[in-house]
Write a protein that binds this DNA or RNA. Structure first.
Lengths: 209, 209
DNA sequence: ATAAACTTGACCGGTGTGGTCATTTTAAGT
DNA sequence: ACTTAAAATGACCACACCGGTCAAGTTTAT
């Protein structure tokens, strides 16, 4: 499925981003069915007629966002340096890329999360269609060419990975709820982040690393 | 603030629980404002008139639940054995108590989580009033008389605690989304749970424990 | 000055809301 | 079996908001 949508792309970039981010926000917050187009246009500061002329319907808007978000996700994995084999360095880089994307699209990943849980009849089929494309492949792609032998072998690797992942996600979530905007997120947060990485490295790597 | 509500308590226990659980579910899912009383009565299988005769309004119902949930939380900490000083054993016991409560009130803790994020004008003041009572005191109470010296001292204790907590919460959440009901949650889940504890213990305790 | 493209918001039928209350059902006392 | 009070019901209310339309107004390019 390809969405062309020349009408929308003819707008200036700033307006496009405003609309996309408002839509991400509203759909992420309320899911497809409960999301209000009125709320989106209010937040994006455009008129109702405009929204429905860019995207012919609520469903059209949602499907457009679906395409859009997976283009963004794909870009993430293109930017990683796959020559670096250290797990923690790779993960750190992944975090930085995500962080940079969130500065431009603050709610992309929230939107992405809700997509996988979405069950509105009107869009469920389309989501299912697209699922194979990116969601699952994400982790596998991001962890290509990692040197797993650095990890301790007296404990289950997949469980250690889970703990690292949960720590990563929970820490990010905690920082976000503390800060109102990503703009203020500075080096002190990154330093704290590195301290967690250090703890996990000391705990899960063999002693000689 | 004390809520008497003889009308509701005159009902048989089974019906009371049905109503409370339906209300927990709906408020947890949608927050105060978006929660639908129609949905609650449908799920609890009572009539609309009944609900509004037990609790005079939506707000009345919500405030009743607020009281109710904090009574439940208080009970948790009364049941713990504070002679046991090992952190992991204590945390495990805490998990089991919570688990038992969730069998009776599957969505209490979800409701509790939404309460702290709730910002509907109509109930915000009441939530603020009650906050000092329990939410914060929870962790402190639960971790009384723990032997913290067992932990490694070359890494930051509070950060290790955070990692343990995040693992605890994320694992629970993962199990829950896998299982539809708590009834089926059996020993194999507990075993997996203990494996995570084992990894964290080996990582964060001094070598001689 | 004219045409074409873009933007607007009042308006539509429809759905779901919190809450009421006349009516029916149930239960107890005699 | 009859009476009566308490409990349960759901049709109904005014209202808010929904996704979507479109005639009218504004901006832009020629």
């Amino acid at each position: 499925m390809i969405i062309i949508n020349t009408k929308f792309y003819r707008l200036d970039k700033e307006k496009q981003e405003r609309i996309i981010n408002s839509a991400f926000k509203e759909f992420a917050k309320n899911g497809y069915e409960m999301a209000s187009t009125n709320e989106i246009i209010k937040d994006a500061e455009i008129s109702k007629g405009s929204l429905f002329s860019y995207f012919t319907s609520k469903k059209g808007l949602y499907l457009f966002l679906l395409d859009y978000v997976f283009v963004i996700v794909d870009k993430i994995y293109e930017e990683l340096n796959y020559n670096e084999t250290d797990f923690f360095i790779r993960t750190r880089e992944l975090g930085l890329v995500k962080f940079r994307i969130m500065k431009k699209y603050p709610q992309v990943f929230d939107f992405l999360n809700t997509v996988s849980k979405e069950d509105a009849k009107e869009v469920k089929a389309e989501i299912e269609q697209i699922r194979n494309h990116a969601i699952k492949s994400g982790l596998e792609k991001g962890y290509q060419n990692i040197d797993w032998t650095k990890f301790r072998q007296d404990m289950d690797l997949s469980k250690m990975m889970k703990i690292i992942n949960w720590t990563f996600l929970s820490f990010s979530e905690e920082q976000r709820s503390k800060l109102s905007s990503y703009e203020n997120m500075g080096t002190e947060v990154l330093n704290e982040w590195d301290e967690y990485f250090d703890i996990l490295k000391r705990s899960f790597y063999k002693q000689d690393f």
